[in-house]
């Protein structure tokens, strides 16, 4: 009883939040999974059960297979691109750069913008066609015309990779900030000890700083990968409607649910999306919480 008097009010204080999260996150995700096992068409949820039929149909669904392939390509290019860009930026800014905060701010600010706006800007900049406009025109003007491309209008099955450019533009700064904090978190004494031993700066970085950056790399990977899987706004703003070369599961979910009224199929795609993200996120949370407890 005395123990309850200590933590009882605390529990009461957090109970509304816990209930709300319980219902809106876990309750809804569960309900959504249930919808995925029903027919649910014509903008209505039906209570019948068709087992895993929707899942089996989706596995055979050519569009869905293409979407999975697309989102994997996008994820690979975007995650790698943002990771490398972020790391390079952090290394450039790490030691004694004039106007550091100006540079830093300029690299991070795209994060503050709505992805619908980012999509609208880049959709215009990444146009193909003649005469060259947007980014292609800029390349032409500075003598880098060979860099011009068809971007998202490309005929190649890799067209989706071009979306990594605006996505990377929006998020590389964030990754840079993570790395910068990581690099600066390395105790100065360790670096200086290495310098006293005669190591030059690249060697100091490689032997002292790099090994301590692995946790940052893991965090950045997980954050980027899960963002990439659920990217929707950006694609909606860039992709011409109906262009399946740039389709992803998140897009398919939206259009099949709200254009075609296929609630069951939409719920199935959404459940698979959640499962894909959980595979990345759950171990990450588990690892973070466990290592915190060890401290």
């Amino acid at each position: 009883m005395r123990r309850f008097r200590r933590w009882g009010p605390a529990l009461l204080l957090v109970t509304p939040s816990l209930l709300l999260i319980g219902v809106f996150v876990y309750g809804f995700a569960g309900w959504n999974a249930k919808v995925s096992t029903s027919t649910s068409r014509g903008y209505q949820i039906t209570d019948d059960s068709v087992g895993l039929d929707n899942y089996q149909n989706l596995l055979k669904d050519e569009r869905f297979n293409m979407d999975v392939r697309n989102v994997l390509i996008f994820t690979a290019v975007f995650v790698l691109g943002a990771l490398v860009t972020g790391l390079v930026l952090a290394m450039l800014l790490d030691r004694g750069v004039r106007f550091e905060s100006f540079f830093r701010s300029s690299f991070i600010f795209p994060m503050a913008l709505s992805l619908i706006a980012v999509g609208i800007i880049w959709r215009w900049l990444l146009q193909n066609g003649e005469p060259a406009g947007g980014l292609n025109k800029l390349f032409d003007d500075v003598g880098l015309g060979f860099l011009a491309g068809d971007w998202y209008n490309s005929d190649s099955s890799w067209a989706i990779a071009s979306i990594a450019l605006p996505a990377g533009w929006a998020l590389s700064g964030y990754i840079m900030a993570l790395f910068l904090a990581g690099i600066r978190g390395v105790p100065e004494e360790l670096r200086e000890a290495a310098r006293v031993d005669g190591a030059n700066e690249p060697r100091v970085f490689w032997h002292v700083v790099r090994p301590m950056l692995w946790p940052v790399v893991m965090s950045a990977l997980v954050i980027l990968a899960h963002i990439s899987l659920k990217t929707f706004d950006l694609l909606l703003a860039i992709v011409p409607k109906g262009d399946l070369a740039l389709d992803t599961p998140a897009m398919y979910m939206w259009f099949t649910t709200f254009d075609g009224g296929f609630y069951g199929r939409g719920a199935t795609i959404a459940t698979l999306l959640l499962a894909g993200i959980a595979v990345v996120i759950v171990p990450y949370i588990w690892y973070s919480v466990r290592s915190e407890r060890r401290k």
Binding site: R63, G242, L244, D247, T256, D259, G260, G261, F262
Partner: peptide
């Protein structure tokens, strides 16, 4: 609407 949406997908492919 449903068939139309499915034709959209088929046409996209």
């Amino acid at each position: 609407n449903a068939w139309n949406a499915e034709i959209d997908t088929a046409l996209g492919l």
